[in-house]
């Protein structure tokens, strides 16, 4: 079980990577330059929200956005821990292989349209949190 403060520190490290060495790949190949809004991850019941403006991460906060979740994924600590090991976004969300697959948060439309951006963000998270 990772405590909330440690997770927040890890997300700050993710922010450094996603705005630094990972920025070009994130914004171009994974289309993050089109994304402005919040991505919320529910980790064992604890929500972490990352705010973006045109693909740049501008804030990391503990909690859900006051105006509701834009997009995100929720899962248990065990699921996240498993994902951070294998680093495959789709594997972790496939009900065929993982009966405890992540829960899609927010609008399915917004989720689907920004799947690439969130998947790459999660790969970078895995580098930090494995």
């Amino acid at each position: 079980m990772v405590d909330s403060n440690t997770r927040l520190q890890q997300f700050e490290k993710v922010k450094e990577l996603i705005n630094g060495p990972e920025a070009e790949l994130f914004k171009t190949r994974y289309l993050a330059r089109y994304f402005s809004g919040d991505i919320t991850f529910l980790m064992g019941g604890v929500p972490f929200t990352l705010a973006f403006h045109k693909g740049t991460m501008i804030a990391v906060e503990l909690g859900k956005p006051v105006n509701g979740i834009n997009i995100g994924l929720g899962g248990s600590e065990e699921q996240w821990s498993d994902f951070f090991k294998h680093k495959n976004f789709q594997l972790a969300t496939s009900p065929k292989h993982n009966p405890l697959c992540f829960e899609i948060l927010g609008s399915p439309l917004a989720y689907r349209q920004n799947n690439n951006t969130m998947a790459q963000l999660m790969r970078v998270m895995a580098k930090v949190m494995e």
Binding site: T93, P95, C101, I104, P108, R112, Q113, N115, N116
Partner: peptide, 25 residues
């Protein structure tokens, strides 16, 4: 069921660009 079913349902949704949304998959 689950996310895979949602993927199929959204493939011809007017708000979805299938080329964009299916890239990562």
């Amino acid at each position: 069921s689950g996310s895979y079913g949602t993927v199929v349902d959204l493939l011809d949704h007017p708000y979805i660009s299938v080329q964009h949304s299916h890239f990562d998959f």
